[in-house]
């Protein structure tokens, strides 16, 4: 006999977690992966440090459960808390994340989407040089690239995570792209397929 497992929505889990911390475990289970990778992508921290940050973020989420408004996607709200916590963390340690620890496939996603490439880049040297250019972009552009092209968030979600108007998100992406193209030109990077 196949057991029918009830799948609860995030909002239902939030409601349960408000009264019972054990139910919060289900929410953590659902979001530990995405948030772990989000932190990794934004910072250069070691996995242990990421876990520590993630625990702090989960506790913050738990403490603020009553502030959650179900009109907002829970994932956007959780990402927002993570984003703000990361900013606070770097402020506390008086540092800024300078470069991102991304996997190759994640870099490829950013490169392909930010400079509108139809084919995957095979020239490794070219990829390395483009990555160097992306890493030179201000962090605000890198973060919006990560959210849009790696996390594949919709504009509305990015708007709710970064708490900026939709127009500002579109502007950040457009400016980031423009800045990247200018950097590629300035550095004479002509290895892109035509």
């Amino acid at each position: 006999m196949i057991e029918k497992k009830e799948v609860r929505t995030d909002v239902q889990l939030v409601e349960l977690a408000r009264g019972n911390p054990e139910s919060f475990g289900l929410l953590m289970e659902r979001y530990q992966g995405p948030l772990f990778h989000y932190i990794r992508r934004l910072t250069q921290l070691q996995p242990d440090d990421i876990q520590d940050l993630l625990q702090e973020i989960f506790i913050k989420i738990y403490q603020n459960l009553n502030a959650y408004d179900s009109h907002l996607k829970f994932s956007s709200w959780a990402y927002r808390i993570a984003h703000n916590h990361i900013i606070d963390y770097f402020r506390k340690v008086s540092a800024r994340p300078q470069t991102n620890a991304l996997e190759d496939y994640e870099w490829n996603k950013i490169i392909q989407s930010s400079i509108n490439l139809e084919k995957k880049l095979v020239n490794k040297d070219c990829v390395v040089r483009i990555i160097a250019c992306i890493q030179e972009l201000p962090m605000k552009y890198q973060e919006v690239f990560i959210l849009r092209f790696v996390e594949e968030k919709e504009y509305e979600e990015i708007m709710d995570i970064l708490q900026k108007p939709k127009g500002s998100i579109a502007t950040l992406i457009a400016r980031g792209r423009k800045m990247l193209v200018s950097k590629l030109k300035a550095k004479n990077i002509n290895c892109l397929p035509s």
Partner: peptide, 9 residues
């Protein structure tokens, strides 16, 4: 992490 967080809570 989940169990540690719940224990901490």
């Amino acid at each position: 992490l989940i169990q540690d967080t719940l224990n901490k809570i």
